[in-house]
Simulated scan of single mutants.
Amino acid sequence: MSSSLSPAGRLFAIAAFAEGLTWAGLLIGMWLKYGTQTTDVGVWLFGRLHGAAFLFYVIVTLLSAMRLRWPWWAWTLALLAAVPPLVTVPLEMWFRRIGLLAHGT
């Protein structure tokens, strides 16, 4: 099914995965720093990576929404999904399933 994704849809999928992955890394880093008090390297590294991934996700979301002509609710959900941890990945899967990432949407 990934062959039916538009280039903008494919880029959105990549951005959503990267945002979710860096969120997970940041959460693990926070657990290591504050839970086990062993190291703060995870927070240092994934904090920076997640900041970049978040900005990339927001930009790609806006571009994809315009390019693929998403309805207003899809724009809103996609932008809000970046706030709580790990929500961009299931949102991308849902958008893919309902056809918002496909050609001719």
Results as ranks from 00 to 15, higher is better:
Leu27Gln: 07
Val83Cys: 02
Ala15Ser: 08
Ala53Met: 06
Trp75Arg: 15
Val58Leu: 06
Trp70Phe: 04
Thr39Tyr: 13
Trp73Asp: 00
Thr88Tyr: 04
Phe56Arg: 00
Tyr57Cys: 01
Trp94Met: 11
Gly9Asn: 01
Val89Tyr: 08
Tyr57Asp: 04
Ala74Pro: 09
Leu101Arg: 03
Arg67Ile: 11
Ile98Lys: 14
Gly35Ser: 07
Gly25Met: 09
Met66His: 13
Phe56Thr: 14
Gly20Tyr: 00
Leu62Asp: 13
Gly35Cys: 03
Leu62Glu: 14
Arg67Leu: 07
Glu92Gln: 03
Gly42Pro: 07
Gly99Thr: 09
Met1Asp: 11
Pro71Tyr: 01
Pro85His: 06
Pro84Arg: 04
Pro85Cys: 01
Phe17Lys: 03
Arg96Ala: 09
Leu49Ser: 06
Leu27Trp: 08
Phe54Val: 01
Arg48Val: 11
Lys33Arg: 15
Gly42Phe: 01
Ala52Asn: 08
Val43Ala: 07
Ala53Thr: 03
Ala81Met: 05
Leu86Gln: 00
Ile98Val: 15
Leu79Cys: 10
Val58Phe: 08
Glu92Phe: 05
Asp40Lys: 06
Trp73Ile: 03
Met30Glu: 12
Ser64Cys: 03
Thr76Lys: 09
Ser64Met: 05
His50Asn: 08
Ala65Glu: 10
Trp73Leu: 05
Tyr57Arg: 01
Ser2Lys: 13
Leu21Trp: 03
Phe46Trp: 07
Ala81Phe: 04
Ala82Thr: 11
Arg69Gly: 00
Ala82Ser: 15
Leu26Gln: 04
Tyr57Asn: 02
Ala15Gly: 00
Trp75Thr: 14
Pro90Glu: 00
Ser64Val: 00
Arg69Val: 03
Leu45Met: 12
Ile59Pro: 01
Thr39Gln: 12
Ser4Leu: 14
Thr61Trp: 12
Trp23Leu: 01
Leu49Ala: 06
Pro7Gly: 09
Met93Leu: 11
Met1Arg: 14
Thr22Leu: 06
Arg97Phe: 11
Ala82Lys: 06
Leu101Asp: 05
Leu11Thr: 08
Ser3Glu: 14
Val41Gln: 15
Phe54Asn: 02
Phe12Gly: 04
Val87Ser: 12
Leu79Val: 12
Leu77Met: 12
Phe17Trp: 10
His103Leu: 14
Ser64Leu: 02
Pro71Arg: 08
Val83Ala: 13
Ala18Thr: 03
Ile98Pro: 15
Leu27Lys: 02
Thr61Gly: 02
Gly9Ser: 00
Leu55Phe: 15
Gly20Ile: 00
Val83Gln: 08
Ser4Ala: 14
Gly25Asn: 10
His50Phe: 03
Leu55Lys: 02
Leu77His: 05
Arg48Ser: 13
Thr38Asp: 15
Phe17Gln: 00
Arg67Ser: 14
Glu19Ser: 02
Arg48Asp: 09
Val43Thr: 03
Val87Pro: 10
Ala18Gln: 06
Trp70Tyr: 01
Leu79Ala: 10
Val89Asn: 07
Thr76Arg: 07
Trp44Cys: 12
Leu100Met: 10
Tyr57Leu: 05
Ala78Thr: 09
Ala53Lys: 00
Gly104Phe: 04
Val41Met: 15
Leu32Asn: 14
Gly99Val: 03
Val58Lys: 00
Arg69Pro: 00
Leu5Gly: 07
Gly35Ala: 04
Arg67Thr: 12
Gly51Asn: 06
Thr105His: 11
Leu63Asn: 14
Phe17Tyr: 02
Thr76Tyr: 11
Arg67Tyr: 09
Leu91His: 09
His50Met: 00
Ala18Cys: 08
Ala13Gly: 06
Gly99Phe: 02
Leu100Pro: 11
Leu63Asp: 12
Arg67Gln: 10
